[in-house]
Design a protein around this nucleic acid. Structure first.
Lengths: 146, 146
DNA sequence: CTGCTAGTTAAAGTTCACTTCAACTCAAGG
DNA sequence: CCTTGAGTTGAAGTGAACTTTAACTAGCAG
């Protein structure tokens, strides 16, 4: 089995056929066509789909994922090195997101102690007036300092 | 300033007025009305809004948040203890979510080494055939064992 | 009273990520 | 040749979480 049908892709990736067609329309994955106009996928497209689903779990939009995948070569099958680069970048995104959630958790824990949870007013969520210039809302959580 | 107008709420919570009205329609927050039919919010409603936004950051739907907030008393201003109970439950949700993202990160890191990312086929994402009966897709990530 | 700002409503519109539908084609088996 | 199963399309529908719009009212300064 050289190329995969859309049915194969759906079963092996756990993603609905309609979603795969949608991803293709949105430029996230690609396929060639048979004489009878049916899609055929190279096996490495499964990795793209895997990457898409993993990135979605992290809360990344399809638009951002599309941009990230654009870093992969158009004309040749991506190598391990190509995927490694992409995955390393993504690992950083994941780390940032985990850090943000840990901060959120720690602040919530703090708020259990003080009984607050009052956004701007709460020194645990917004401990520094300096943050005020960044805008309204719980800045430390929404726009964490990098 | 005893009660807050919707404008005050919007500024102090960083949430648009239209969103506040929406939350009220959906039963997430409450207000009283003036003689002229304008909304007036008690200050503790700011905490509800804070909680809503924090929970959303964790990826919880408004429906789930509504159910959680239902644990707060209807007839009296929530006490520190009320908020502490709610926050403690939420902390558990946050911990679970963080654990899931750490697993995701570690698996992605593993895949940088092996260059894979092939869903079912990848032993790092789906290391045990036993998982197959749970359905298609990268089960370890989508339905992590509790 | 005139303006002006801040608030009210119901209803319609928006974005994202898909799914569903209707009508159609293609390839293989009997 | 006929049926069946898998595939195709564009268009419309879905649900979540809001936002926008239009037409209206309330409260206050001058």
């Amino acid at each position: 089995m050289e190329l995969l049908t859309i049915g194969d892709m759906a079963v092996r990736s756990g993603v609905a056929q309609s979603a795969l067609r949608y991803y293709e329309r949105e430029g996230l994955i690609r396929s060639t066509r048979t004489g009878g106009n049916q899609r055929r996928y190279e096996r490495h497209e499964l990795r793209r789909v895997a990457f898409i689903r993993i990135a979605q779990q992290v809360g990344v939009s399809l638009e951002e994922i599309r941009e990230a995948l654009a870093a992969l070569p158009e004309n040749r099958t991506p190598t391990k090195a190509d995927w490694a680069r992409l995955s390393a970048r993504w690992r950083r995104k994941l780390d940032e997101r985990i850090t943000m959630m840990e901060r959120l958790r720690d602040q919530l824990t703090g708020c259990i102690g003080c009984g607050c949870l009052s956004l701007q007013r709460c020194r645990l969520i917004n401990p520094d007036d300096r943050l005020a210039r960044l805008g309204e809302g719980p800045q430390l959580i929404l726009n964490p300092p990098s």
